[in-house]
Amino acid sequence: MEKIMYEEKQKMTLWWVVLIVVALTSLMWYGFIQQIIYGLPFGTNPASDPVLIVLWVLFGIGFPIFFLTLRLEIKVTDQSIHVQFKPLMIKKQTFLFSEINSIQVETYHPIREFWGYGIRISLDGEKGYNVKGNHGIRIELKNGKNMLIGTQKPDEVKEVLDSIVWKE
């Protein structure tokens, strides 16, 4: 059985992303209340009531719930690293230390390297999992694939990774 050495759960709390979610959610609630509750058309070319209700359910309720449940989970055991971006990834990805060629904790540039946050692929094919910040675990697998997993605790995860000797 694998021994858990490190766990980290990160939520997407970038102020500008939160602002977009709050603005969109507020707009949908305002439109719903104005048109459905008070019977006043919302906008200069209002959608029909059924269409507005569908939009309200999707963007006034569903989108904020989805955003609130978004999280990146990292688990380092004595044998592997696990990563899962919930709820986008149903199954966690596992990388055995025996499959890893090199691993390092470093500072990176999420916008420049991955064009943003979330589950991304860089121009050179490297996969990135990040929600905020600019620290990550860069992994090069023996099969030639590379990836970066964002972390908010670079010193802590580096100390754990440095203490683990994996099979090469």
Rank of each mutant, 00 (worst) to 15 (best):
P64R: 03
F85W: 06
W56K: 00
I37W: 09
I90M: 12
M5N: 06
G60H: 02
V17Q: 07
H82N: 15
S26Q: 12
V76T: 10
Y6E: 04
F32K: 00
S26V: 13
F59N: 00
Q93R: 12
F66R: 03
I20F: 15
V18E: 08
H109S: 13
F59Q: 00
T13V: 15
K3Y: 14
G39T: 11
V22I: 15
N45F: 01
V18A: 11
I100P: 02
M5R: 11
G60D: 02
I20P: 07
S80H: 06
Y38Q: 13
K3M: 11
E106T: 15
E7D: 04
Q104K: 09
F67N: 02
F66Q: 05
V21Q: 07
L24F: 10
T25K: 03
V105P: 05
I61K: 05
F59Y: 10
P64T: 10
M89V: 09
S80V: 10
E2L: 09
L55M: 07
T13H: 12
G43Y: 06
W16C: 05
L19R: 02
Q10H: 05
I53D: 01
G60Y: 01
S102W: 05
L96A: 11
Q104S: 06
M5I: 13
Q79Y: 13
V51P: 02
Y108C: 11
W56I: 13
L14A: 11
T69G: 04
E7T: 03
K11I: 04
F97V: 14
T77G: 02
I81K: 00
D78L: 12
S98D: 09
Q35V: 10
L19Q: 02
I74W: 05
F63Q: 05
T44W: 11
I4K: 05
T77E: 01
S98V: 14
I65Y: 05
I33F: 02
H109R: 12
T94G: 02
W15Y: 05
S102A: 09
L14H: 11
I33V: 14
A47M: 08
V105F: 02
Y6F: 14
Q35S: 04
S26W: 07
S48N: 06
V105S: 05
W15R: 10
T107Q: 13
E99F: 06
S98Y: 03
G43N: 07
L19C: 05
V76W: 01
D49K: 01
E99P: 13
T25D: 07
Y30W: 13
E8I: 15
W56P: 01
P50R: 03
E2H: 10
M89H: 11
W29K: 01
L55Y: 04
K86E: 07
G62W: 09
G62Y: 10
V76K: 01
Y108R: 09
E7N: 06
G39D: 07
F42I: 06
G43D: 04
F59G: 00
E2Y: 03
F67M: 08
K92W: 14
Q84A: 08
T69Y: 03
Q34W: 00
K9N: 11
Q35L: 02
F66T: 09
P46L: 01
G43I: 11
G60M: 04
W16R: 04
L68F: 15
D78W: 12
A23I: 12
V57I: 15
Y6R: 06
Y30R: 09
L24S: 08
D78R: 05
Q10P: 00
G62D: 08
Q35D: 04
M12H: 08
